[in-house]
């Protein structure tokens, strides 16, 4: 009874809440890191060093007037932010934060569930996330959001192909689709997949930037071109949901990248006995540290690079990344067959 219902429920509650807190603090982190890159201080007023800024933001967004444009498609307009938020959250169901640990005399695995098709689940849930953006653009009944949502969905669909192809090469290496087993395969193979699959790693990272609509691929919300992008007509809490969904997606991308390419919860050089003293740091901390590195790079890229133009982005996706990913996949397959 406890194993079947109580523990999974507890895990879900913990992970969901942790994610939401992480998402709101990701906003603060981004503002702080970009501020440092630009020789500013960032938020400093709310709490010491601005650490209560997310709370202030949330309060502000919640008490703001929630406007629905008169000619908008009411139901779809309301559903769109929810549709974009939910997939970002349910992906965490399969992300492993650590191996099985014993907690109060009970064996508990540090992931909500470990399904056989974990990786495919991540991809398919991510593919549903595009609906939020398309529908927001459509339901607003306004030109800028429509243009932005077309850009966004075309971008998401094209980059999903490249990203999924890189995942296939990882699956070839690991021989499994389960997230936990992929980490185990990296332990047994004595190497992180980022080192054996550098091309896949790079393509995945660029694809992840594009799929999460982050700079330099943030066309859908390019403020300078399309005012606010697909959420131009949104305000208050519904806008906040879009905002949070974007950051939640960034965190998801970081977690997936960590799991697939950086050995998930494994400490550096997990097979070297000399470094066993590193074991005093719990496994989930390693996971968080690695994810944090990814988050930092996401922000760093945003502070540094200009934005691609829409057609250039498409060209990069279809003419560079996808062929590269396919070539990588073929080479991986051939090498794998030759070695076995």
């Amino acid at each position: 009874m406890i194993d079947q219902f109580v523990i999974p429920l507890l895990k879900i509650v913990i992970v969901l809440n942790a994610t939401l807190v992480a998402v709101s603090y990701m906003v603060l982190l981004e503002r702080k890191v970009i501020a440092w890159a630009q020789s500013r201080l960032g938020p400093m007023r709310v709490g010491p060093y601005g650490i209560l800024q997310p709370v202030a933001d949330a309060v502000k967004l919640m008490i703001k007037e929630d406007i629905t444009p008169v000619r908008a498609d009411r139901w779809v307009f309301t559903a769109a932010p929810i549709i974009s938020m939910v997939p970002a959250l349910i992906v965490y169901a399969v992300i492993p934060f650590g191996p099985k640990v014993s907690l109060f005399g009970r064996q508990v695995s540090l992931s909500i569930t470990d399904v056989n098709v974990g990786l495919l689940y991540v991809v398919s849930v991510a593919s549903v996330g595009v609906y939020g953006i398309i529908l927001a653009g459509y339901a607003s009944n306004s030109k800028y959001p429509l243009l932005a949502s077309l850009r966004a969905s075309a971008q998401l669909i094209s980059y999903e192909v490249a990203v999924t192809l890189t995942l296939v090469s990882v699956v070839l290496m690991a021989g499994t689709l389960s997230m936990v087993s992929i980490v185990d395969a990296q332990y047994n193979g004595r190497v992180w997949f980022a080192f054996v699959q550098p091309v896949a790693f790079v393509v995945f990272f660029i694809g992840a930037l594009a799929e999460t609509n982050r700079a330099p691929f943030d066309m859908p919300e390019a403020e300078q071109e399309l005012t606010g992008g697909f959420h131009t007509e949104y305000s208050g809490m519904r806008f906040a949901l879009f905002f949070l969904a974007e950051y939640a997606n960034v965190i998801v991308a970081s977690s997936v990248a960590t799991t697939l390419f950086l050995g998930g919860w494994l400490r550096p050089f997990p097979n070297v006995a000399m470094l066993r003293f590193l074991g005093f740091i719990p496994s989930w901390t390693w996971f968080l540290i690695k994810s944090f590195v990814f988050l930092y790079i996401f922000i760093w890229v945003r502070a540094t690079l200009p934005r691609y133009r829409y057609d250039q982005l498409m060209r990069l996706g279809w003419k560079v990344l996808i062929p590269l990913a396919i070539a990588n996949l073929v080479v991986t397959g051939i090498v794998k067959v030759l070695l076995s």
């Binding site: 630009q38 020789s39 500013r40 300078q224 502070a303 690079l305 200009p306 934005r307």
Partner: peptide
């Protein structure tokens, strides 16, 4: 100009 093209850091550097 850089901000319009999406590079926002240059904006703050130049203002400095």
């Amino acid at each position: 100009h850089a901000m319009d093209i999406g590079a926002m850091t240059v904006f703050l550097y130049a203002f400095r």
